[in-house]
Nucleic acid binder design. Structure first.
Lengths: 354, 354
DNA sequence: CCTCACGATGATAGCGCTATCATCGGTGGA
DNA sequence: TCCACCGATGATAGCGCTATCATCGTGAGG
């Protein structure tokens, strides 16, 4: 027979004319382990999944064989056979936005102990992109999804529901009682800033915001609402859909000062904008907060170290990621959550800049 | 014939007592599409993979059926059957380090057009973690890996080579002629900073560095080498393995000033440290660069906006990601690269702080 | 002693897809 | 006219794993 040496199998020495094994990857399979340990493949599978199902003796033999062969389970095969991928998808607007970094850390810390892997998808703040990502995720047969924000097209949500793929929203609280969400009220956070500004006696507030995602806009609404409630109905605002950055913060502040040089406080949509605004003030010699107060949002790590330190709204980003992931995993395991909506709150951290 | 109904090959609705179909996911499969389009599953597969293999007529029927059923291919099955996962793994020390954000963007932009997905693994600067991640990746049958840094245990590299899984190193240039790498010389970059300091006539330089990964240490060596070459053999350094951050930059600077208040320039291992150092100087009223000059590394977006703007080494992070991914994809397709090592260089961007 | 429940293990049959080869009408050169 | 040849399509057989059921002692209960 001409087909010798094709399958590189040394042990199985009977049947010299063994079938040619059409396609083999060359890596050790569960069958190889089983053969070496002289047990059935099922016993190997059980040993690896739940050792208590197997007697000590067989377990030891299997583990030895696994070690000897350097066996690594083929996850695609596991997924196909068990209809569980042990992958969860995470949709964030942008990983370059430091805000999500801690959320991702929380997610990772929660799911990694449970043996799950994470696939991150970036929407770059585009709803279309988000749609497409979620569709790809369905192809991967992921076990669940964490989505930033609560503004998901209803049909997409229903698509997941129909397929029984759990989905948890992060960062904001969903008004839909059926939706699972972990976060804090973006509206209330904006409101808190507005109230603070009123309390402190600032008279001519301004709002600078970039990357106008739904959460930013909700904070804006809350901000507006608080001012109106205090009878201070008007405020200046400069908005741009561009992605936020320190540089952009400087530009926005310049535009603001050009149009309204008499502002006495700016609420910046996030800390990057706030830092950029602060730098611009320094460059122009404008005293902060003496002449112009600055407030940020999220309380990124640098906010407390800036000079002056930046007053900002501290958000539980790590905790949101962790709890959302936790809720998702429980949902995957079919455990209903106690509450569908977990509010982790926020608090305004008062520092030197306002 | 007693064996009817074996392959469930009729309309799904007759035979109320159809066999129970042991485990079904409920989602449309390629067989469903084939049935609806009245073609064989293979034709569906071909239509989706390479439409030119199929006549216009069948193609249309298949596409119509796909649309009607909302068919989404099961990637686990594809992976298992074809031994190709269309996933590449990326190993970075930490996604919270903004340095890697742009590299990831470059990678994503390169691979997404080719239909690949990315799985990100974080080593958190631990070699053990890195090892384990790479092993998991093998389990996923990924098609290739991008690894940050060139300091990979030889046996891990060989493991990949044995399995024919391409691997490309990023951010530094490998001395090993067989290894593929895209980046710049970390040593040379450190050297450039050292030379600049000498040229500018600074006399008492210091080095502040955190998170002492191999690349940081190579920059340090280059820095040292440049100073020695200029006969200025000694410099003060404060090193810590802690993860770098703006806050840490301030702390390190405080420690430096406590021990060596007469330093005239600090080279910070990265821009976060530099920014923290700058803030600390502002807090203490130390003129920068008048009394103390500050240099950073990487030229993160904020560096040019700080006041004073921060002199830093600009590194082609996006381009490194893009090119490394490109090289990896070609390698996956079996195309040998022209050069195994691509040096994308760096340049020192001189600003106000030094 | 025999049944029966039960825990440990094995045998069997897919999961949904694609590699591979077989089949089947044309085509064109000998 | 015949046949090697080719392009389009289908049939078959896995990829490596696990769900499910069968089997086989074993010890409790009758």
């Amino acid at each position: 027979m001409s087909n010798s040496g094709d399958g590189l199998e040394q042990e199985p020495d009977d049947l010299p004319s063994a079938r040619p094994r059409k396609r083999a990857t060359g890596r050790a399979t569960i069958a190889d382990v089983a053969r070496l340990a002289a047990v059935s493949p099922m016993t190997v599978s059980r040993t690896l999944k739940d050792p208590t199902l197997v007697t000590q003796e067989l377990r030891d033999r299997v583990m030895a064989a696994v070690a000897e062969l350097g066996y690594v389970p083929n996850l695609a095969a596991q997924t196909l056979a068990s209809a569980r991928s042990n992958i969860i998808g995470v949709i964030v607007p942008s990983i370059s936005n430091s805000v999500f970094v801690e959320t991702l850390a929380g997610i990772r810390d929660c799911v990694s102990v449970a043996g799950y892997q994470v696939i991150i998808g970036e929407t770059l703040y585009s709803a279309d992109q988000e749609r497409q990502l979620l569709s790809t995720h369905l192809g991967r047969a992921i076990d669940g999804v964490l989505v930033t924000g609560i503004d998901l097209h209803k049909d997409v949500r229903e698509g997941f529901a129909r397929r029984n793929t759990p989905l948890v929203h992060m960062m904001d609280l969903s008004p839909d009682p059926d939706a699972l969400s972990v976060g804090f009220s973006q509206f209330a956070a904006g409101e808190a800033v507005g109230r603070y500004i009123v309390e402190r006696g600032y008279k001519r507030p301004a709002l600078l915001a970039a990357q106008l995602d739904p959460r930013t806009m909700k904070r804006r609404e809350g901000f507006q609402h608080a001012l109106e409630e205090a009878g201070q109905s008007s405020f200046v605002e400069i908005l741009t859909p561009n992605p936020s950055s320190v540089g952009l913060g400087g530009q926005l502040l310049s535009r603001l000062l050009g149009a309204h040089p008499d502002c006495d406080v700016v609420f910046c949509g996030n800390d990057d904008i706030a830092l950029g605004a602060l730098f611009e003030c320094q460059r122009r010699g404008i005293p902060v907060p003496g002449k112009l107060a600055i407030m940020g949002f999220n309380d990124l790590p640098f906010a407390q170290y800036a000079v002056p330190s930046i007053t900002s709204v501290t958000t539980p980003r790590y905790e949101i990621g962790f709890q959302a992931a936790h809720m998702l995993l429980r949902q995957i395991d079919g455990i209903a959550p106690e509450r569908n909506c977990i509010d982790l709150g926020f608090h305004l951290t008062c520092r030197e800049s306002a």
